[in-house]
Simulated scan of single mutants.
Amino acid sequence: MPAQKPSLGSIEATQNHSELFRAECARLISESDKACKHMQNDENKQLDQRSRDIQFLKKELELKLEEIIVEIDDLIELQSRVVKALEASKEPLKVTVLCLEERMKRLPFERLHDEVYRELLKEREVIEGVATPLQRVVEQIIEQIRLNRSAKYHLEQDLKEKSEALCIDSSCALMTTCSISNLQKSRNTNTVLQSSAVTPKQYENISDINIAKAEQQKTNSRSLRALVESLLEQVASDMQKQVQATTAAFQLKVQEIKSAKSQMEDQLAKILSEIGSQQRTSEDLRVAIAENEHALSLAQARLALRHQRPAKERCHDPAQSQLLAEVRQLTAQVTKLREAAAQSEDEQRALVRCQLQLQENIETEANALYIDEVVCPQHREPIIIHHF
């Protein structure tokens, strides 16, 4: 059957349809191109905004990390000072105990609970009381350093992730169709369809929480440092005041001992002088006794000789009366002189006892003075309490 001849109308309709289709394709291409460029522009804007957001958070994290690092360094330095303060308190304590032991070497009756002894006990109590609070703050500092390092670790991890994210988003912003022409298509579609690990709100909260924790630990750290600084200052002040009080007590005691020793030395000089005088008096008494005894012997001899007179001559004449009176008087004088001589010996013995007692007391005071003025100050000389 012969083919039918196509009509001009049908051909024209086909032509028109083709022209319309081409126009539609051109429009579709134009709209696709515009849409693609618009989406790429929006995406670039979002990536740029995202990069700015990450950079802002990154700066916040870096600032907070720098602050927490400074706090850690300050706490480590403070810990070293507290440990040194603990070590520095050991030597004054040894000196105080040594001074107490040295003062126990005095004679029993000298081991009185005097002012120096009481101040030394206070000094030992103050210095021993330093160790407990200082040891406690050392433990607090160690714990705070641990917390600060934990906050530092989380900040560093967050910063590391922020840097990686910023690097990736910056790379995304620089990517073009030409730069990825050699990449396989399989590396595109799957990642786009994957769900996000965290929501934008959760993402912001992660850094906010890390920054807030770091800020809290920084605040706690500064409060602890202020507390420890105050404690170190108070401890040093208390120790210094007590050391000064003990030193003043030593100085006062030394003056008291010197004064007492000086008085006893003056008294000893007087006693020695009195002993000499008493010895001379005793010698004078012995001479007087001998002279009176000679005179008594003479009077008695005269009486005995006159008793040999003839009976008629034995009258009680004035001479006889004088001789009898002289014998009585000389006998009484010799008795009194002998009593005085015996009393003088007693006085000398009493004075010698006083001399020995004074010499012993002076020696005791000299020993106590040597301990309080020489030995203890030599031990205490290195004690210099500075602010820790």
Rank of each mutant, 00 (worst) to 15 (best):
K122D: 11
E156A: 07
S170F: 02
A245L: 13
T281W: 09
S207T: 05
Q194I: 15
K336I: 10
R280M: 12
D208H: 15
I68W: 02
S10N: 07
P2R: 14
L47D: 02
Q46T: 12
L147S: 02
E313L: 06
L330N: 00
E19Q: 07
V375T: 10
H387R: 07
S273D: 09
A319E: 06
E115W: 05
K45R: 15
E115H: 11
K261M: 12
L28G: 02
E60F: 09
E43K: 10
I275P: 04
A295K: 08
Q194N: 15
P200S: 14
K160A: 10
P2N: 14
K37E: 07
K5F: 14
N44A: 14
R328C: 08
A131R: 05
R111E: 00
C354D: 03
S259W: 08
R338S: 01
L351V: 03
Y117G: 06
E62R: 09
A248E: 13
Y203S: 07
A23R: 13
Q49P: 01
V352A: 09
A35F: 06
V82E: 05
Q217F: 00
E67Y: 00
L193W: 11
C315S: 13
V228N: 01
D48G: 01
D208A: 15
N361Q: 13
L303C: 06
S207R: 02
H386R: 14
T177R: 14
T247H: 01
E91G: 09
I11D: 10
Q244H: 13
L121F: 04
V243N: 03
N220E: 00
C167F: 11
H17S: 11
E24I: 03
P318A: 09
L224T: 03
E326Q: 06
R187L: 13
C167K: 13
E291N: 08
K253H: 11
D284Q: 14
H17T: 11
T199P: 11
G129P: 07
L369E: 03
E164C: 03
